[in-house]
Design a protein around this nucleic acid. Structure first.
Lengths: 206, 206
DNA sequence: AACAGACCGTATGAAACGGACTATTACGAA
DNA sequence: TTCGTAATAGTCCGTTTCATACGGTCTGTT
């Protein structure tokens, strides 16, 4: 039973196992892929190394699967659960961190061709519209399942951020139209964006 | 003159020198500190290593200062300027990346005490209000200087994101009041927030 | 049996991280 | 003149993260 500091990634692992119950690294990978991964990205390789560390610290317990592949199934220990609770109740005085290549390009735009900006803006609109569809699909699929309802709240923030970004880039795109509808997209999602998005245009900076 | 891939950090350095003209690493550090650093954070130590790399690649030229300290002053070469332009005109099909401990804790909230959430929300409100004040101060200070006006546009996005986040956390804080005014804060900033922020409450998810 | 395709895990070198630590300069006070 | 100290400027270095390529394994199908 060794010691060592717990990183935010450690808490993602602990928390995920807390929510899902006994899990293999691969389970975690998938679970994270469409939830926490949106606001705490990291490479999946860490999901094999980190639980081992946590097990050495006594925060997780391992046992091999019964079935053919005998993967490692991790469970929270009492210590692990306590660490998690302590983390959740400790103050969080950090600001979120944003990493945005598009903003980078926008900031430096005077050094390039003026036509770069509307093009960039349209590319970003596509990004955000796609992300919004992704989030809405999740909301439709899981929004009414009481078991997960409580974690859907982060999705709401995600959606609002996306709408804000979309609105911003639209204002730079130099056209009133949305970009072309990609094949296979539900028009409903777009309709929703248009409907819900426009009243916000009276906002502070639009 | 070596080769090697250019990272986003490389472009930050090139771009910053492009905007500011000849610069020392320390100049860059300060310049980045209240601009690009907000959407592309990285440790300042890189601002000493990266220009060297870029110089080896022929994208920057160095010359030592005249004055006492003989610091290294970097300038864009034609090659550097071209690399920058090419980057600016190339497609950007990545989505911004967000790293938010607060959302992490919110997502896992069911594993802790229910009282954790409003506390977290208030902490985050403070973070965002402070950031908004920071941004507004910049806007007041530089908003009317034509030399920098074109890069202020990213500030607008930053502000909108902050307002969105603030609104979200306020809705979770369980109180209608803003948090207490810290000593020394201009009340004006708060007044603005309150005024500009509220009409948005009719938005999609509030 | 062969194969495809999803599933699952490992390996690895290169960057990035962060934060402590050092050195330099300026400048006013003692 | 020396001292103190604050701001400026740069370095170092052990630890994490990162990206990504690669290697195995299982299941179902033909």
């Amino acid at each position: 039973m060794s010691t060592g500091r717990l990183s935010n990634t450690s808490y993602v692992v602990l928390g995920m196992i807390g929510l899902r119950g006994p899990s293999t690294p691969y389970d975690l990978k998938r679970g994270i892929g469409h939830s926490v991964g949106y606001f705490w990205p990291f490479p999946h390789a860490q999901l094999y190394a980190e639980p081992e560390r946590l097990e050495r610290m006594g925060l997780l317990a391992v046992q091999p699967e019964e079935s053919g592949r005998r993967r490692k199934v991790y469970t929270l220990t009492g210590l692990g659960r306590a660490a998690l609770r302590e983390w959740l109740s400790s103050p969080t005085n950090v600001h979120f961190q944003m990493r945005d290549v598009a903003e980078l390009k926008l900031f430096f735009n005077e050094l390039g061709d003026p036509a770069d900006v509307p093009r960039l803006a349209r590319e970003q609109m596509a990004q955000h519209q796609q992300r919004i569809r992704e989030y809405e699909r999740m909301q439709d699929r899981f929004g009414d399942q009481p078991a997960v309802a409580r974690r859907m709240v982060t999705l709401r923030l995600g959606l609002e951020m996306e709408h804000t970004a979309l609105r911003f880039w639209r204002s730079l795109a130099g056209t009133a139209d949305d970009i072309a509808l990609p094949a296979g997209a539900e028009p409903r999602a777009y309709a929703r964006i248009a409907k819900e998005d426009s009243p916000q245009n009276e906002g502070p900076l639009a």
